[in-house]
Design a protein around this nucleic acid. Structure first.
Length: 263
DNA sequence: ATAGGTGTTTCTTT
DNA sequence: AAAAGAAACACCTA
């Protein structure tokens, strides 16, 4: 699930559920999701504090409080859920925050690939130090530098969080499809026009996906067709192609996105 | 039933 | 430098 658009929706969940609220109780149901902090210290440091305005950088969610910051990363299957006070916990609710006003915030995750960190401002800076600029905020000039400076495939650059933060497998494929750029093209082999188009289509795609709260599995999107082994391009009846690029399952349209001829 | 796959990241090996 | 593989984890499907 969680790429930039999903994490942005979790930020909104956090804001509407808990911003300005007092943290009454922190229940760690599975300490396996805690990183660099014990259950005891998480509770001691957060209970009695108040959530403030949450932020996001790439796929990281920063749950700010009037004390330390709780950082959340959702791996492949994590999510943030807000519920009323009396709902039964879900099997995969790993940490549950009860705040005042009758709201309960749940960090839910099936696989526990990532999890929760607690940090002061220096710690936050350290954790995010390796991240590139957020994909929603990156300037055209910076985006250009990113691509022209690298000989790797364009897909691997787009999904490299240290280059550009926030794009995952689905968003990258979606953006490349919209921009009609083959994912295996070399980043430094793109023309000026292609980089310009890629930037514009990245912004368009992100705007729509953030509005939807995910990369929408609609038929007019590549994502709406990638799970169908016989899926075709939304633009025509061409059968989608699949392969492994940048180490991830990749989908593209052979007609819209011509194969790289350069090397 | 075992193998292989997965909207992620990181570390190691090639 | 960059790509591939494995590992972390839990679950699903073939």
């Amino acid at each position: 699930m969680p790429e930039l658009a999903d994490v942005e929706s979790f930020r909104e969940v956090l804001a509407s559920c808990a911003r300005g609220r007092l943290i009454q109780r922190v229940e760690v149901r599975d300490a396996g999701v805690l990183h660099g902090v014990s259950t005891r210290r998480l509770r001691a440091d957060l209970e009695g504090r108040r959530f403030t305005e949450p932020e996001r950088h790439g796929k990281w969610l920063l749950a700010r409080t009037d004390g330390p910051t709780l950082l959340l990363h959702f791996g492949m299957t994590g999510m943030l859920v807000c519920s009323g006070p009396d709902e039964e916990p879900h099997v995969h609710d790993r940490v549950i925050f009860t705040v005042d006003g009758g709201h309960v915030l749940r960090y839910r995750d099936q696989r526990k690939l990532k999890g929760l960190w607690l940090a002061d401002d220096d710690g936050v800076a350290r954790l995010l130090a390796g991240q590139g600029p957020d994909a929603m905020e990156v300037s055209r000039a910076r985006f250009d530098d990113l691509l022209t400076g690298r000989h790797a495939t364009v897909k691997s650059v787009l999904t490299d969080q240290s280059a550009l933060a926030g794009l995952g497998n689905l968003l990258a494929d979606e953006i490349l499809w919209r921009a009609k750029v083959h994912p295996a093209r070399k980043a430094d082999g793109l023309t000026e026009d292609e980089r310009k188009g890629l930037y514009a289509d990245m912004r368009r795609t992100l705007r729509s996906a953030v509005r939807a709260g995910n990369v929408p599995p609609r038929g007019s999107w590549l994502t709406g067709r990638r799970d169908d082994p016989e899926g075709t391009c939304p633009r025509h009846d061409e059968r989608l192609r699949r392969g492994r690029i940048a180490g991830r399952g990749t989908v593209w349209c052979p007609r819209c996105q011509p194969s790289p001829t350069d090397s």
